[in-house]
Structures are given as structure tokens and as C-alpha cells.
């Protein structure tokens, strides 16, 4: 390629590069910079606040902040239950879709994707009303079967949010797994059948190993989203503030520190910490799953 042409090619990416600098690199740098300071009010609290350089103090405080650490643990534990559950259902549905005629598969796929078309905030609003003892149909339904459930109680709120996320996520994950399944050479199945393998055995030994990559990918995307969960608990908090505290998830704590406690420096340190944890979790998960492949 001629040299001038290369630079013309580079010019196509200039708007993005400029935007990236101003909307990604600059804010991140600014957050890191801000996280090294602390606003201190003067002795009597009358002379106004001064901003002092405190080094990594905010990070030390964040790592020993029990509310922050509890929120991370809470979300991680929840992720360990909800994500495998959701992916298992998505995988099962993808396998079922693969077992019907292509025409039927197309129709069911549209129906199963309906939740994905609904904005997350609206999905949460709808489910909150379904759970509501006053207007929702689930409470009378439970009574019919002898359950006395209260979805907004501390023990039920995570299953309630988990169901909402599963409902919202299975369609999307199913489509990705199903697409990977379509890439499996059909000859493999016929050969396996000739060898006398049952359909279940084919699913377990051929189809699932083949879509492993898609499963790892969907799990990784789900983990990244889950550690940043904010919308659903924020909406639940509107209805049941006594169960869903304002320090329920890491991002909720960061938002509160920044906007309600006006402790921006600390919020910046916490968001950098969360980014590091997110990167570490993704890296560990990736390493763990790619080692198993060998």
C-alpha cells in the first residue's frame, strides 16, 4: 500500500480516536486523578473545604469498606447461581430448537426473543408489578397452591431479581448458542446415530462440546453485566426500600457516594477498584475456561 494512502486510511479513524480520547481516556484519567484526593472540611467546618492529596488512601479505605466488599460478594454469589441457571436454560432451549423442524424453530425463536426486545427498566417495572401483592397475579396464584410468598422480603428479593434477569436474558443467550449449534456439521450426528448413539448422548457428547465457545462467551458477557448491576435493584428499591438498601450493589454504592454523599473522590476510587475487579474476574474466567479446553 502506498504511504499516502495509509495516512488517508488512518484519517477515517480520526473522529473516533478524538472521541475516544475525550469520552473514554480523559474521563478514566480524570477519575484516577480525582481518586488520589480527598475533600476535607477545616477544623470548625466553617472555613469551607480544602482538597488534599492523600495518595492511595481512598483505595485502602475502599478495600476495607465492609459495605462495598459485602456488595461485591453479594453480587458475585448471585452471579454464581443466576448465570449458570440462565445459561443452562438457554442451552436447553437451543437444543430443543435444534430438534424441531426449521420452520417451527423460526417461530419459537421469535416468541422466545420477545423479552429481549423489552427495555431493561420496563422489564423490571413489569415484573415488580407482577410480584406486587396488591396488583400482581403471582400472589393469588401462590395462595392457590399453598405458597405464601412475599417477593419483596429479604430472602425472596434475590430470587425475584434472578427470575427477572433470567426471563430477560434467556432469549438472547439462546440465539447465540443456537447459532453456534447450526455450525456443527450434520454428518456428525448421522454418523453417531449409525453407531447407535441416542439423541441424548449426541446432545451431551457432540452438541454441547461444540457450543462450548458460545457458552464461554455468553457467560463472560453475563459476568461483566452482573458485576455492574444497577437498574433492577434501583427499581426494586423504589418499591421496597427496607429490603433493597442503597448499598445493595457496587454501582449503587458508587452512585450514592458521588451524588448523595457528595464524596466524589471516594466514588472515583471505588469505580477504579470495580474496573480492576471486573478485569480480573474476566481474565480469570477466560483463563480457567480456556485451560479446560486443552
Amino acid at each position: 500500500m502506498i504511504r499516502s494512502q495509509r495516512w488517508k486510511g488512518a484519517a477515517f479513524t480520526v473522529p473516533f480516536q478524538l472521541g475516544f480520547v475525550f469520552l473514554y481516556l480523559l474521563p478514566i484519567g480524570y477519575a484516577v486523578y480525582q481518586s488520589l484526593f480527598l475533600e476535607k472540611s477545616s477544623g470548625l467546618g466553617l472555613g469551607g473545604a480544602t482538597t488534599e492529596f492523600v495518595g492511595l488512601d481512598n483505595y485502602g479505605k475502599g478495600l476495607t469498606d465492609s459495605a462495598f466488599m459485602t456488595s461485591i460478594l453479594r453480587v458475585v454469589l448471585f452471579a454464581c447461581v443466576q448465570i449458570p441457571f440462565m445459561l443452562l436454560i438457554s442451552l436447553l432451549l437451543a437444543l430443543l430448537l435444534d430438534a424441531v423442524t426449521a420452520k417451527a424453530a423460526g417461530r419459537f425463536r421469535i416468541l422466545l426473543l420477545v423479552p429481549y426486545m423489552i427495555p431493561g427498566v420496563v422489564a423490571a417495572l413489569v415484573w415488580i408489578n407482577l410480584y406486587s401483592p396488591a396488583v400482581g397475579p403471582l400472589t393469588p396464584l401462590g395462595e392457590l397452591f399453598g405458597f405464601d410468598w412475599n417477593f419483596f422480603s429479604p430472602s425472596m428479593v434475590w430470587p425475584a431479581i434472578g427470575n427477572l434477569l433470567t426471563w430477560h436474558g434467556i432469549g438472547y443467550n439462546m440465539v447465540i448458542i443456537y447459532a453456534a449449534l447450526q455450525g456443527v456439521p450434520r454428518e456428525l450426528f448421522e454418523a453417531a446415530r449409525l453407531d447407535g448413539a441416542s439423541e441424548l448422548r449426541i446432545a451431551l457428547s457432540i452438541k454441547i462440546p461444540f457450543v462450548r465457545g458460545a457458552l464461554v462467551l455468553t457467560a463472560l458477557l453475563s459476568i461483566i453485566q452482573m458485576l455492574q448491576i444497577f437498574n433492577e435493584p434501583a427499581l426494586f428499591r423504589n418499591v421496597t426500600p427496607e429490603t433493597v438498601s442503597d448499598s445493595f450493589t457496587p454501582i449503587m454504592i458508587i452512585y450514592n457516594q458521588a451524588f448523595n454523599a457528595a464524596n466524589y473522590h471516594y466514588a472515583a476510587a471505588l469505580s477504579v477498584l470495580l474496573a480492576l475487579i471486573l478485569g480480573l474476574a474476566s481474565f480469570l474466567f477466560y483463563r480457567l475456561t480456556s485451560r479446560e479446553a486443552d
Binding site: G9, A10, A31, G279
Partner: peptide, 29 residues
């Protein structure tokens, strides 16, 4: 479709940004 110096770095920024939590960008913004 072009091979220019820094192309790899730009692409690394694109992929790396998938991992940045929204709070880390939104609050300083």
C-alpha cells in the same frame, strides 16, 4: 482496509473498552 501505524492500538482500545464499567466513565463525564 488500511494498514497504518497505530492500527493495532486503536483496535485494542475498541476491544478493551468492553471491559470498562459504566460508572468509571459516567461519573467523571
Amino acid at each position: 482496509r488500511f494498514d497504518f501505524p497505530g492500527r493495532g492500538a486503536v483496535f485494542a482500545c475498541v476491544v478493551g473498552s468492553f471491559l470498562i464499567p459504566i460508572a468509571l466513565l459516567t461519573l467523571p463525564l
